[in-house]
């Protein structure tokens, strides 16, 4: 695909560059991250770090205030104190405090419930918006969706790009929508822009959409909604991480990254952390710049943390289902 000229607010044009992505090289490099061996103390550090980066998510039609309340409780205190006590008693020493997750991510209708429980805590409240997951609503209604979410207490907005426009080649519309949402977010909310990589078909388009979103003001770029047939993979995340690196070198602005959907195990999470470290460096290895959009991942992280302390493999039944 060719580079594109985009009109920016206030007049003038910018170029969204096109650099073809080496598909074979990307796949090979992404696969190489699955071969690292992270053990003992390093593994424990990685597990704690990954846990602190989780955007604990529930995005189901069946979400209820009760489920969201439970999720907020788990976000604030992922491991029940009784379990911590049990481990400490067993190993005869204190364990490092288990941190809260980075954020809770819900549908707009559940923001009010989540806000009650998260206000005044370190856990951010993210809401999907702009007619998530399809983005198939008129632009004014999408913006209204964002305004309401922020008014209700969302501190982070996860918007979807207009894939219809993107795939038709109408990049200006995609850009304008992100700019408009960013204007509403202003300083009140962080903006994460979801590319839905599973629908973009090629690495070239993923890289192009990443750059377009970052130019439009995205604070984070995010792989997927979790609702498509293909969600986050190491390879498409790698393409986005490299776009972030190049954007930083070119524009001098750091942008965060959030792979979402399909990251279910601690082992996968650690592979992502290795990839971030080797692509972007340590500056991005904080919850401020890297997040996992996940739900079941949290239980596996807790299981593995307990395994590291006790030497025993733990059972899912020791943790809440959601």
């Amino acid at each position: 695909m060719p580079a594109a000229q985009i009109k920016v607010p206030g007049g003038g044009r910018i170029t969204i560059p096109h650099y073809p992505v080496d598909r074979v090289g990307t796949t090979e490099r992404a696969n190489s991250f699955t071969k690292r061996s992270i053990k003992t103390e390093s593994k424990l550090d990685a597990l704690y770090l990954a846990l602190s980066m989780v955007d604990l998510t529930t995005l189901e039609g069946s979400d209820t205030p009760g489920k969201v309340r439970q999720l907020c409780g788990k976000a604030l205190r992922p491991m029940p104190p009784a379990m911590v006590e049990q481990i400490e008693k067993e190993i005869g020493k204190k364990i490092r405090p288990i941190p809260s997750v980075a954020a809770v991510c819900v549908y707009p209708s559940q923001i009010a419930t989540a806000a009650k429980h998260l206000r005044g805590t370190s856990v951010e409240l993210a809401s999907v918006a702009t007619a998530f997951p399809s983005g198939q609503l008129p632009a004014d209604l999408k913006l209204e969706d964002v305004k309401r979410a922020i008014k209700l207490g969302a501190t982070e907005i996860d918007m979807v790009i207009n894939r219809d426009a993107f795939l038709r080649g109408d990049f200006q519309t995609v850009f304008d929508e992100v700019v408009a949402v960013k204007d509403i977010c202003s300083d009140e909310a962080h903006l994460k822009v979801i590319l839905e990589t599973g629908e973009l078909q090629t690495y070239d388009k993923i890289r192009f959409a990443s750059w377009l979103s970052m130019e439009a003001g995205a604070d984070f770029i995010k792989t997927s909604t979790g609702k498509a047939t293909e969600n986050a993979t190491l390879a498409n995340t790698l393409v986005m991480l490299q776009a972030i690196q190049d954007f930083y070198d070119d524009r001098g602005r750091m942008v965060g990254m959030k792979p979402a959907g399909g990251i279910r195990t601690a082992k996968q999470a650690i592979q992502y952390l290795v990839m971030v470290k080797e692509t972007l460096g340590n500056e991005w290895l904080t919850p401020q710049w890297f997040r996992f959009g996940a739900s079941v991942l949290l239980n596996d992280l807790l299981r593995q943390i307990m395994k590291q302390y006790t030497g025993r493999y733990f059972d899912n039944h020791y943790f809440s289902l959601d």
Binding site: G311, R312, Y313, F314, D315, N316, Y318
Partner: peptide, 8 residues
Amino acid sequence: PHIGSHME
């Protein structure tokens, strides 16, 4: 030992 200690 891992059969004995596995919680599952």
